[in-house]
Design a binder for these strands. Structure first.
Lengths: 216, 216
DNA sequence: CGTCGAATACCACGTTCGTGCGATTGTGGC
DNA sequence: GCCACAATCGCACGAACGTGGTATTCGACG
C-alpha cells in the first residue's frame, strides 16, 4: 500500500535532543512521512549532505550551536533548491522572523505548536502554502505596513514627476529634452523646480529621496 | 445570556448584492456576532460613518465601484483606528495583496473561502492574528524574499564602500576628501574604481544601484 | 477682468563631474 | 624576491550640472 516514492522525506535539525526525538517519532509515526536524518547542528547536517537524498522538508531550529538556523537556510537552499524549510523555534522577535523569511523559509512555527499543527504545516507547505504561527503572521503584516511610508506630497506636478522619473533613470538634461520634445532650457527649469520642491540641490539627492521615501 | 456588549460588530462593504446578503446572513446567524451595516461602496459607507458606531471588523471587498477597497482601508483606518479590516476579494495578484497589506489590512481572504473559514478568520483577527489564504501567505513570503536580494558582490573594498556611503549621502568629492582627510584626487580615483566595479558612470547611477540592489 | 500656476523657452556663469593618463607606498601571498 | 592589489596622490580637459535671472503663453478660478 505505502510506497517509498510517495513518502514525504523530512530532515530535522534541532539541538535539543529530547525535542529532536519527539519530532523524529512524530514524523515517523505519521502516515506518508518519514525522517531518516536528524542532526543537532547545521554543520553536522552539511557534512552529511553528500550521503543523503534531498529531503522535501527541513524542520529547522534557529537557536543552534555554531551556525544559526538563519544562516543555515541559505546554505541548504543552495544545496537543495527545491527543499522547503520550515522554521520551528522559540524565537518570535522581529529580527529573527524577518531574516528567516527573507532568506527563503517556507514557514515559521513556534515550538509551542501542538504536534498536529506541525504535521498539518508540513502538508500545507507542500500544497504551496506558507504556514505561520498566528503571532508571526501578525508580525509579518506589521512589517509590511511599516514598509509603506505614506508618500509625502511635495506638490510635484505631473510634468515634474515625468521628468523626475527620467532623471532617476539616468538620462542627462539634453536626453530628457529630446525624449519629451522639449527645449533643454525647459527641462533645466523643471529640474530647478523639482529640486526646490524636494529640498535637494543635486540629482543624486533627488534620486536618494525618491528611493528613500518611495516617491513616484 | 447574550449581551450586546460582547457582540462583535461587523461592517460589510461588498458590491455584489447576493454575496453581501450571504455574508450578512452568515454573520447574524453566528453566535456572538452581528452585522447592522452593509454597504455596496466605500463612498456609501463613509457617508454613513457619523450615524454608526465603530465596528470591530470591516469585511471589505477590493473590486468596488468608485473608490477601491485599497483606498478604503486608508480612509477607514483614519476614522476607526482600532477597527480591523479584513479583505475578502477575488483578486490574488501581487499588487493588490501588497497594497492592501501595506495600507494596514489585518487579513486577506479569497472569496472561495468556506463560511466557517470567514468566521474563524474574524475570531483570529480579534485574537491578534493575521488570517490569510494559503496562497496569499505564500505570496507574502515571496515578497519578503524578493526584498532581501542577496547582495551581489561587486568586489568593493572597505574604503570604497565607505566612500560610496558618503557619495550616496550627497557629499561632493571635495567634501568627502575633507571628511576622510584625503586628497581630492584620491577620492576621485576611488570613485572612478567604484563606477567601474558597479558598471555605472554617474553618481546617480551609483545611488540607484545601491538602493535597487540593497547594497551597503 | 485680473491674476495665479504650470509649462514653455532662453542666457550666462561658475562649479562639479567623469575620464583619460601616470605615479608611489605598503601589505600579504606564493 | 616578486607580484598583485589596495590606497594614496597628481594633472588636464571637455561635458554636464546647478543657479541666478527674465519672459511668453494658456487655462483656471474667483
Amino acid at each position: 500500500m505505502k510506497k517509498n516514492t510517495v513518502m514525504i522525506n523530512v530532515l530535522i535539525i534541532e539541538d535539543n535532543i529530547s525535542y529532536q526525538r519527539t519530532l523524529y517519532g512524530l514524523i515517523n509515526r505519521t502516515e506518508g512521512m518519514k525522517c531518516t536524518n536528524a542532526f543537532t547542528s547545521c554543520e553536522d547536517a552539511l557534512n552529511s549532505v553528500s550521503e543523503i537524498e534531498a529531503p522535501e522538508i527541513i524542520l529547522m531550529d534557529i537557536g543552534l550551536p555554531g551556525m544559526s538556523g538563519i544562516k543555515g537556510i541559505d546554505k541548504f537552499k543552495t544545496i537543495f533548491p527545491s527543499t522547503h524549510i520550515l522554521i520551528l523555534t522559540v524565537y518570535d522577535d522581529n529580527d529573527n522572523v524577518f531574516e528567516a523569511l527573507c532568506n527563503g523559509a517556507s514557514g515559521y512555527l513556534l515550538k509551542d505548536s501542538p504536534p498536529e499543527k506541525i504535521i498539518d504545516s508540513i502538508k500545507e507547505v507542500l500544497a504551496g502554502g506558507a504556514p505561520m504561527n498566528m503571532k508571526i503572521a501578525h508580525k509579518v503584516l506589521e512589517m509590511f505596513s511599516r514598509f509603506k511610508t505614506k508618500k509625502t506630497d511635495y506638490g510635484l506636478t505631473d510634468r515634474e514627476k515625468e521628468i523626475l522619473q527620467l532623471l532617476i533613470s539616468g538620462l542627462t538634461k539634453q536626453q530628457i529634452a529630446d525624449k519629451l520634445f522639449l527645449s533643454f532650457h525647459t527641462v533645466n527649469t523643471h529640474i530647478k523646480n523639482i529640486y526646490h520642491k524636494l529640498h535637494v540641490n543635486t540629482r543624486s539627492g533627488a534620486v536618494s529621496k525618491v528611493y528613500k521615501e518611495n516617491l513616484l
